[in-house]
Every structure is written in C-alpha cells, then in structure tokens.
C-alpha cells in the first residue's frame, strides 16, 4: 500500500485549516479509508481538540523524531472510528524541533499502512510551512472569500508551484456566506476561483454548527443534517475520485421549501 500524502495549508491563520483537516480526515475514515492526520503546528497544536482526543495523547511527533517511542506508539486512535489516527504535535516545543527530512521520513513510513496521510500545516510561510509540505505530493489550499485570505492563498500557491514534489493542488473555499454574495457584499466563489486560477475541490458554507462541533470535539461531518458537514463529506468523496456536484448553497430553507423537498425526496426514492 502506498498512501496519498496531502498537506492542508492556507498561509493566513484562522481560515479553517485545522477544521478542514479534522472533517476531511473523519469523512475519509467514514468512507472506509485508513487515515492518519499529522499535526505539524508545533507549539500551537489544536487538531487533538477538534477531534476530542486531547486527553489521550501520550507521545507526540517530537517524541518520535527524538526516538523516545516508535512511530506506531505515538498514533492515537479516534474514539468513534478505528480507521482514523492522529499523530499529535508537541505543545511545549517550537517549529525547529522537527526537520523537513524527518517529516518526509515519517510520511514515507506511514504511507505503508494508511490510504491517506493528511498533514495539518501551521499558518505562515516560514519553516513550519516548509516542514509540512516536505513529505506531501498533493495540497489543499484553504481560503475564505476575504481579501487577506485570498492574497495569502495566492502566495501559498506560488510557493507550491515552485515545489517539485507537489504534483497537484486544489482550492477549498471556506466560510462562504451566500446571503452576502447575493447582496454583492462578498466575493463570489467564481471571483475567487478566477483570481487564483486554481481548481476547486470544495465550497463550505459558514455554519454556526462548526462552533458547537468544535466545542464538543466532534467533527461536523458526523452530523448528517449539517450543510457544512455535507459539503466536507463531498470534498472527501472528490478526493477519493468520485464526481460529486457542488452543493447549491442558496437553498431555500423556508418551511414550504422543506416540505417540497421532503416530498420530492420520497418520489425520488420510489423510482
């Protein structure tokens, strides 16, 4: 087995890299894939919180590279899904504790046992970014329809273009607000895609459910009724290679529309 190593990056902080990582990882695992997530944000680890695994971490990636434990010992299994593992970042060390070469070796080792290795990249374009990208051959660039996030994404795309190891990258547009786009107060998906001229892999609507799911340590893809959860699930299916159309985010959520959808769903099933 040779798993795919995908780095999830953005340049700007706070656009939803870690949330994206947790949700795509969980969705891929739910689809039956063996997934490991690596948090490379040394000193500012958060992926464990989003997955609700913060109390289970014994060893971190720094313990692995400093030979205090074997790689397999440091992998924390998810509560719900045995297909999902986390290699946590060290909270007490900084970005220099792990080198590009070491991360590359860890990724190569994990490729033998997992279908997907998702690398959560720290914000910025310094060494932390270089480390995270080192072992990856694919990238997902997370951005939001805001000027500063798009500008930073453009910078990241420029850096990814220059890396020979990165064979492909895709854009994930997060925190999209259809109402603001409709009133011409926010850049549309098309605007961002045109400006960055990159292929899109997902459009995630802004969803207050993300806050509650983060608070619970339970990724939103586990919630069948959430639109953001659905959108993240679709991203995972596209990664696997399925051709999934983008969600219509301008769905009418009025009562009548819901009833209509309910009935059209019934008719659809009967066919």
């Amino acid at each position: 087995m040779s798993g795919r190593v995908i780095v999830i990056t953005s340049g700007k902080g706070g656009v939803g890299k870690t949330t994206t990582n947790a949700n795509i990882g969980t969705a891929l695992a739910r689809a039956g894939k063996k997934v490991v997530m690596i948090d490379t944000d040394l000193g500012l680890r958060n992926l464990d919180l989003l997955l609700g695994l913060e109390n289970r971490i014994v060893y971190t990636i720094v313990d692995v590279v400093e030979s205090r434990c074997k790689l397999k010992q440091a992998l924390v299994k998810d509560k719900k899904n045995p297909n999902l593992c986390l290699l946590a970042a060290a909270q007490t060390r900084d970005k220099t504790a792990v080198t590009e070469e070491q991360l590359k070796n860890i990724c190569e080792e994990l490729q033998k046992d997992f279908d997907f290795i998702l690398v959560d990249c720290p914000a910025g374009i310094e060494q932390g970014f270089q480390n995270a990208v080192a072992g990856a051959s694919e990238a997902i660039v997370v951005t939001t329809p805001e000027m500063s996030a798009v500008r930073d994404a453009d910078r990241i795309i420029g850096l990814l273009e220059a890396k020979e190891e990165i064979k492909s990258y895709k854009l994930l547009l997060n925190r999209v607000r259809p109402n603001l786009i409709k009133s011409n107060d926010m850049m549309s998906v098309e605007d961002v895609v045109e400006i960055l001229s990159a292929d899109l892999i997902g459009i995630i609507p802004e969803d207050t459910g993300i806050i509650t799911s983060t608070n619970k340590g339970d990724p939103i893809v586990n919630d069948e009724n959430s639109l953001a959860g659905k959108a993240y699930n679709n991203v995972a299916r596209r990664i696997i290679g399925e051709d999934v159309p983008f969600l219509n985010l301008e769905e009418d959520n009025g009562v009548i529309a819901k009833v209509k959808r309910f009935f059209s769903g019934l008719i659809g099933k009967e066919k």
Binding site: M147, R151, R155, D185, M186, M187, I195
Partner: peptide
C-alpha cells in the same frame, strides 16, 4: 461600486504587484 467589486479590483492590483 459595491463592496464585492471593490474587493475584486483591489485584490487584482495587489496580486499583480505581489506576483
């Protein structure tokens, strides 16, 4: 000009300079 167009135009200029 609406906020969206302003953002798109400002971004275009700044990205050209960045690139």
């Amino acid at each position: 000009e609406n906020a969206k167009d302003t953002a798109v135009n400002r971004l275009r200029v700044v990205l050209m300079q960045d690139r």
